[in-house]
Design a protein around this nucleic acid. Structure first.
Lengths: 151, 151
DNA sequence: ACGCTGAAGTTCCCTTAGGGAACCCCAATG
DNA sequence: CATTGGGGTTCCCTAAGGGAACTTCAGCGT
C-alpha cells in the first residue's frame, strides 16, 4: 500500500499515529493494559491474524511502548507496557469516554471505570496542566513551537 | 483488505476507531479544527491522495463528526466540525501531549498551545470528571457495564 | 528414547485498500 | 464562449490485511 510515513511530519499527532495509528494497535495496547499479555491470548481475544499481530507487537516493542518478558524458562514471552506505553493509556481512556458518550446507544457503555481516589464510576475530563481549568477544543490557541518546520 | 469491522465490538475504543481509526482521519480532523476547511487545501496540506480524501470526508460526514457547508452559491463546500467532532479534539490534544513528551526529540514540540483561561503555554492533563483528582492508567478498575456482551 | 503438546511465530496465497496521476463536471468570469 | 478553479472520479499498480497451514522448540508422559 506504500503507506505515507507520518513519523516525519512536524506534528505530534502525526508522530503519535506513527506509533499506534496502525489498525489494531490501540486494541492490542488495551488488552495488554488489562493483563492479557500473551500472543495466543491476544490473537484469540482480538480475532486478529497472527501475521499482523506479530508485525504490530514488533513495531510496538521497537517504539518502546511495550516490552517482551520471557517466562517459564522456555521461548515464551509476556508483553507488558513500558512507562511510555502506560502513558498512552491516557489516549485509550479518552477514546473510551468519547465512545461511551457518542456510540454506546441504548445499551449503555460496555465497560465502566471505577476511580480509586473517589471510588465512583467515572470517566476522564481534560484540564489544563498549568491552571487546572477545563481545556477543550475552543479553549486554546495553537502557536508555532521550537520544533516547527517553518522556524 | 477485507478489514475487520471494529464498530461491532463491545468496546468503546474499538467503536471510536471505527469512526476515526483509519489512516489520515485524525490529521484531517486536526486540519479542519485549525480552520483548513476545503478539499484542495486539505489535499495540498496533507499530501493525501484525492481518492482517499474523498472517502475519508464522506465517512466522517456519515459518522456525524463533520458537516459539509456550501459556500459561494456554487458547488463549493467547507467542512466544519460538528459538536460530536469538536469533542474528538480532546483526543487530538492528548495525542499532542504524548507526542510532544515522547517523540519531539531535541527540537522540541512543533506546536504550542496557549490556554485562554490562564494565558500560559500548557498541555492537557487527565482528571476524574467526578472528583477532579488525576486519572491515569493505574488509577482505575475496569468493570463490566450495561452494554457488555457477557451481560 | 520418543512422540505429544502448546506457545509463538512464519509462510503462502488471495483480496482489498492506499498512492499517483489523469480525467471530468460545472458555475462564474473575461 | 473559452478559461479557470474547486471538488471530485477513474484507472492502474503496489502493498498491507485475512486466513490457514506449516514450523520450531522446550517440556511432559510413558
Amino acid at each position: 500500500m506504500q503507506r505515507t510515513n507520518f513519523g516525519d511530519m512536524a506534528c505530534s499527532i502525526a508522530r503519535t499515529l506513527d506509533v499506534i495509528g496502525e489498525p489494531w494497535s490501540p486494541l492490542i495496547l488495551r488488552d495488554i493494559w488489562v493483563g492479557m499479555s500473551r500472543f495466543d491470548q491476544l490473537q484469540a481475544d482480538l480475532g486478529i491474524s497472527r501475521k499482523v499481530l506479530t508485525e504490530r507487537l514488533n513495531h510496538l516493542v521497537e517504539q518502546g511502548v511495550i516490552d517482551r518478558h520471557p517466562y517459564d524458562n522456555r521461548p515464551r514471552y509476556e508483553y507488558r507496557l513500558t512507562p511510555k506505553g502506560t502513558e498512552l493509556v491516557d489516549l485509550l481512556m479518552v477514546m473510551t469516554a468519547w465512545g461511551d458518550k457518542w456510540l454506546s446507544g441504548q445499551a449503555g457503555p460496555p465497560v465502566l471505570y471505577r476511580h480509586h481516589a473517589c471510588g465512583e464510576i467515572s470517566h476522564v475530563d481534560l484540564r489544563c496542566a498549568h491552571c487546572g481549568e477545563p481545556m477543550h477544543a475552543g479553549d486554546i490557541d495553537p502557536l508555532p513551537g521550537p520544533g516547527s518546520a517553518v522556524a
